[in-house]
């Protein structure tokens, strides 16, 4: 659960999208579409970075608060969160869920329409559409009911079965364990006109394994077993494999102009996630 303090920090932030919004009702994103008139539509509070030419000075004089004027040509954008709910996400589910809540809050407070889809067993379980700040509680409730227990299928299959993929922002929150390092999933989302960002979540045990001795590793998702003598050389080899894997994902993301961040599930989420989001360019 995100704390109120953290949520208050999120109020000053907005998700960043390179493209133009294409949506329905008014949102915070610019649209290519221009209205037939500069008819005033609504107010919203000023967020640092907004165009000061649209400040409502009258509201400032009256309420001593800064408000922005919204006109008809400003429209909502769709934000899709694809949350990997396979069994391998269990030990980092808290961090992944918090990341989904954070992105969801930013989307809702930014006036975007939000959907969340759980990727498990080779399919996507879609949430209802959420809109407006008040819908955050519904988002939270939806996530409360989500259980990371998918053991069938692959992430790529589940992504390809995601519903309602309209042009917009897409946040893929996953551990990334695919043979092609998310390449096909990213290509598909790009094909579906998604401006995708990848949040890869790995647990402390995956980033810094402390396994030693003769162990029989059991995959929580597939049940596959590997007998291993976890000596110094074996751990070195694991780290090499991890580095190669992360490098592949980064390369796949950078090659598709996809922002990417690696979230360490063992660290305090609220302390480390916002800097990562900022560095990745996902928020502004």
């Amino acid at each position: 659960m995100l704390t109120d303090r953290f949520l208050a920090r999120l109020d000053a932030l907005r998700l960043v999208m390179r493209g133009r919004a294409q949506g329905g009702a008014g949102g915070s994103r610019r649209s290519r579409q221009t209205g037939s008139s500069a008819e005033f539509s609504d107010y919203r509070e000023y967020i640092p970075g907004d165009d000061i030419r649209r400040l409502d000075w009258n509201a400032l004089a009256r309420f001593d608060r800064l408000y922005m004027k919204l006109f008809m040509e400003e429209q909502e954008s769709q934000v899709m969160i694809l949350l990997d709910a396979s069994a391998s996400m269990e030990d980092k589910w808290s961090a992944a869920r918090s990341a989904a809540e954070t992105v969801g809050y930013l989307a809702l407070t930014g006036g975007d329409r939000l959907r969340l889809q759980l990727l498990k067993d080779g399919r996507a379980v879609c949430s209802p559409q959420f809109s407006g700040r008040a819908a955050f509680a519904k988002l939270t409730a939806f996530l409360d009911r989500a259980v990371p227990d998918g053991k069938e299928g692959t992430l790529t299959e589940a992504v390809r079965r995601a519903e309602s993929l309209k042009k917009g922002l897409c946040f893929l929150i996953t551990d990334g364990y695919t043979e092609d390092a998310l390449k096909e999933a990213l290509d598909y989302l790009r094909y579906m006109r998604q401006e995708t960002a990848v949040i890869q979540v790995l647990s402390g045990g995956e980033l810094r394994p402390e396994t030693e001795g003769a162990v029989r590793l059991c995959d929580s998702e597939s049940g596959e077993q590997i007998d291993l003598l976890a000596d110094r050389n074996a751990l070195e080899s694991y780290h090499e494999a991890l580095e190669d894997f992360l490098k592949q994902i980064r390369e796949n993301c950078s090659g598709r102009e996809t922002p990417y961040l690696l979230l360490d599930g063992s660290k305090a989420f609220e302390d480390c996630f916002l800097p990562l989001l900022s560095r990745s360019g996902m928020i502004g």
Partner: peptide, 24 residues
């Protein structure tokens, strides 16, 4: 050789590391 069972989220990376280990 008594292997102690240990559950991990995924053996994806371990599998790759063992292959590299044996190959190299």
């Amino acid at each position: 050789r008594r292997f102690l069972p240990q559950q991990v989220p995924s053996v994806f990376l371990w599998r790759r590391s063992v292959q590299d280990y044996a190959a190299n």
